[in-house]
Design a protein around this nucleic acid. Structure first.
Lengths: 200, 200
DNA sequence: GTCTATAAGGCGATAGAC
DNA sequence: GTCTATCGCCTTATAGAC
């Protein structure tokens, strides 16, 4: 028979990784303020003292979550772009990668957009991380727009890279937010078509 | 000399109105979960028992806030539309009314979008109110799109009312969300121009 | 309607023993 | 790294007196 005190502990990863992984899932799925530090500790299978040896505060943990998420999401988008060869497909790749991602995590939307209303202080490092995420996306989309325009000047020469990128960003963000509040996938599909129309 | 115990109480309105007004401001400005019932009670200048005689729970108060906000916002948009005569101006009025509104409340974004991450339960009546708000907006924008198309069939006859309205909604939502997380007004100005381009 | 008191529990964070 | 115990505070909500 198994010892009574045996606990289910995620077998893989260090204590730090288990905490970060568990917190990332909980913060994203049920929100930052709705997730207690005790819940993270329990589900990560670590002791309280262990938690506080790795993270000084709950905010510190949240910042680690956002930084990690920032790197991962941009890397995933980059991976998807790299599977495409034609500039037009690379340009469309960013918003096309949205649909499986949104569906895959139950229409919970963007972790950065969702964090904003939970952190009222606009100067918080947590908010800066969200700002940074969208600024990076905007820069990348502008690059892809520029490459698209240069690739076929006769066809796309009338377009302006920054304007095109900014339209793209507004549509991309709107598709995510509207899908979340509407609990429907239509804004995502609409967003993909809207970006297609931007270059036609 | 004034009595020591004198409190600052908003002179206008019933206790119910003061509670609802105060809570609306606090929920919107600093978030639902970050706002305690005690803070609402104190700033509204009512007694705890008075509060609980009007609202059974904090959620009940939040629902009243959202319903009230829903009615008010749509009425304000309708007022702005009614100042315009030409169908194209009425069509553009919805997103044009955004800029002063967003700037006026310090880039805090949409109260309904902001409420979603704070209420993880997708079946909650609070979430339904947000869904309803955007569904109503979508319906209204489709009407305005239909009127625009009918007004000049030779110019706008190639457009499809539902597609145009859905593009509009994605842009509108994205402009609000992106302005909030970027702490910048550019997405709003971009959104207005993007909607103009939709019909050109 | 007002006031104060308090229940009952969760929160983030710390301390001590092993 | 583990465990348990606890601090001080805040939360929602209720009760009783006026």
């Amino acid at each position: 028979m198994l010892p009574v005190s045996q606990k289910k502990i995620k077998p893989t990863g260090s204590a730090y990784d288990r905490i970060l992984f568990t917190a990332s899932d909980l913060f994203y799925q049920q929100g930052y303020r709705a997730t207690g530090i005790n819940e993270v500790i329990e589900k990560a299978g670590v002791a309280k003292a262990t938690f506080y040896s790795h993270f000084s505060t709950k905010d510190d943990l949240c910042l680690a979550y956002l930084k990690n998420r920032n790197g991962k999401e941009l890397a995933e988008i980059e991976d998807y772009i790299s599977t495409k060869a034609r500039p037009v497909d690379r340009f469309l790749a960013v918003i096309e990668s949205l649909e499986p991602w949104i569906i895959g995590n139950g229409m919970k939307g963007c972790g950065f957009l969702n964090m904003v209303p939970e952190v009222p202080d606009a100067g918080s490092p947590l908010r800066k991380e969200g700002e940074l995420h969208y600024a990076r996306l905007r820069t990348r989309v502008k690059e892809l727009a520029g490459e698209l325009i240069k690739s076929k000047p006769k066809r796309y020469g009338h377009l302006h890279a920054q304007t095109l990128a900014d339209d793209y960003m507004v549509v991309l963000t709107g598709a995510i937010a509207l899908a979340e509040i509407s609990h429907d996938i239509w804004p995502i599909k609409q967003g993909v078509e809207a970006v297609r129309r931007l270059i036609h």
